[in-house]
Amino acid sequence: MAESRKPSPPIASRNCDDPQIDYKEVAYLLKFLTPQAQIVSRKRSGFCTQCQRELKQAIKRARHLGLMPFVQ
């Protein structure tokens, strides 16, 4: 029987009432990328649906401006 892997802890906890995630906070957004620069899943980020959507939008805006990589 295959051993069950312990799930890794969420990257960050976030209060949904906080101000919207900003694309200019690149250092914060970089935490939510995998080594290949993919956006991490909701399971890994620990965000709720709305927060994850904000995160996705912010990362994609930063990528467009050349602040963050598409691939690495």
Binding site: R63, L65, G66, L67, M68, P69, F70
Partner: peptide, 15 residues
Amino acid sequence: RKLAYTIRGRTRGTY
């Protein structure tokens, strides 16, 4: 800052 990827042959840019 340095760009995350090359844009029109530029590796740096001003925002």
